[in-house]
Design a protein around this nucleic acid. Structure first.
Lengths: 287, 287
DNA sequence: GTCGATTACGTATTACGTAACAATT
DNA sequence: AATTGTTACGTAATACGTAATCGAC
């Protein structure tokens, strides 16, 4: 029986050509490699090399053995990779979402429901990548803007989010009861760039607007508070009572920015995740 | 890195269920197996088992690891098998023949031409199995009754063999210059049963004959010499001068039993085996 | 009481590195 | 002189078996 370390060294010799090169790549002394190759021949009961006084090279059988060594090694590495990967998945609850708001509710909830597991949240801009991740097992759960029909999935609504524009009371639109995104044409707007699907919607529907992007949320808040530029708020991200005195939030009526989020999991996980859905139910009722 | 012996024991545990069973199957002590499994977990950095006080069972990750262990082991065994098989092929010259006569010439010749190699001869009754064996690499060379067209093969005739019937001078057919197999209808015939294609030809073409079979050639000769039953001789197997005084050899005219043998090898071996073919040429001229 | 698994411990194996050597470039 | 491979030798790692322990059937 050939031990793995010998097979590894055999494959390395095929790759690097000389024992000395193998020894420095694998951080093993040169004589050790030499002995390993002798042992390989001994265990196989076969000559694998043509040896000069200071040269070693594969013969035909050696080439064959080296090709097989690569195969064995790749199966070996795949074994280790697969087991570790399965373990990682077993101990992390990973979900993806189309927007940040649901994550503020979901992450704490999941941490509470699965105390042993790490909760990993992933913000994506497109629903396709989320659905793909769900089907490939990369996500235990995903949050979309619509229920996912068929495909062995189970969907459930759990949260509504409505976008408003935060305007200084002196702004030309501050008196409006409501507006459309199109009304903001030409404005300079402060915007967070890690907001999932919102970002592309706003880019698309506000003609000639200038977006002043900021990736740090706390920094963005400071800038919002200290400037007169319009920015976005939602019913979830911002409590109406906490808004600055000198500003007013005007609801935006476009249907694209008044959304319901849906939790989606694979159908065969529905039972396992029942606790999540009932907890979301409770949370929705308190909202 | 998981050493092979650990992977082997892991796979064995999946197969036999308990450490003690594995220990007796692999002839290793029970504590050794226990430690190996702990080491497997340690190296993978993952828990593979659910342990009771005197019970061990795979968990989900363990099942996965065991499945992969089987894969790794089969690649490992295939490596050893392939190398040893290639070595065996490298050191044996193996050929197959449709009849025994060519082997009497070929085997000594090949032993002489390839002194380092063992010559292995294989008698087959059908040409199909020979051609298949040639194409699969089981035979370096085969001997057929016809040249093999196409298929990347090279064919060369090297020997004729003609069948006669050996009759006591008192036999009703002993005076004939020649006969056909059909003339032997109803006879009791002594026959060797390891004669390749001859056997099925005779069975087929002599109606109502009774074949007294004998597998030992020397025994057959004795019986032939001490009885009055007809038997077969050929120009190759039997020198006319050595025939018993009280018997006569009558040629058989059926074309199926007056044959030319052809040596066939794969076309890309033609150069390598050139020495064989030229030696056969010489032998044929001396014949 | 037997069977199955683990721990403890001493032993034997063995894989390793260092050093020395031989031969090629 | 620098590089490459092998042999010799002492050491350190480690895989092993035996014995003992602890529970479960």
């Amino acid at each position: 029986m050939l031990e793995t370390y010998i097979i590894e060294q055999l494959a390395a010799l095929a790759e690097y050509g000389t024992l000395s090169k193998v020894s420095e790549v694998l951080h093993i002394s040169q004589p050790a490699i030499s002995r390993s190759m002798q042992k390989a021949e001994d265990e196989l009961g076969v000559s694998l090399f043509v040896r000069g006084k200071n040269r070693i090279a594969f013969n035909e059988l050696g080439e064959l053995a080296a090709r097989h060594a690569r195969i064995v090694l790749s199966a070996h590495n795949e074994m280790i990779r697969a087991v570790r990967e399965a373990d990682r998945r077993r101990r992390t609850f990973s979900y993806g979402a189309i927007a940040p708001a649901p994550m503020w509710t979901l992450t704490p909830l999941l941490s509470q429901l699965f105390p042993g597991q790490t909760v990993s949240a992933d913000l994506q801009e497109t629903e396709e990548s989320l659905v793909e991740g769900l089907n490939e097992g990369n996500y235990n759960l995903i949050v979309l803007l619509r229920p996912l029909a068929g495909g062995g999935c189970y969907s459930r609504p759990f949260m509504r989010e409505k976008l408003s524009i935060l305007l200084p009371r002196t702004h030309r639109l501050a008196g409006r009861k409501s507006i459309y995104l199109a009304d903001l044409s030409g404005e300079k707007l402060l915007i967070h760039n890690k907001i999932g699907f919102w970002y592309s919607i706003c880019q698309k529907k506000i003609p000639q607007a200038i977006f002043l992007e900021q990736s740090e949320l706390s920094t963005l808040r400071e800038i919002v508070n200290s400037s007169d530029l319009p920015s976005f708020v939602t019913n979830i991200s911002d409590n109406p009572a906490d808004l600055p005195q000198n500003k007013v939030a005007v609801p935006i009526l476009d249907s694209e920015v008044n959304v319901t989020f849906y939790c989606v999991c694979l159908a065969d996980r529905r039972r396992e995740y029942a606790a999540i859905f009932s907890a979301l139910e409770d949370a929705a009722q308190r909202m």
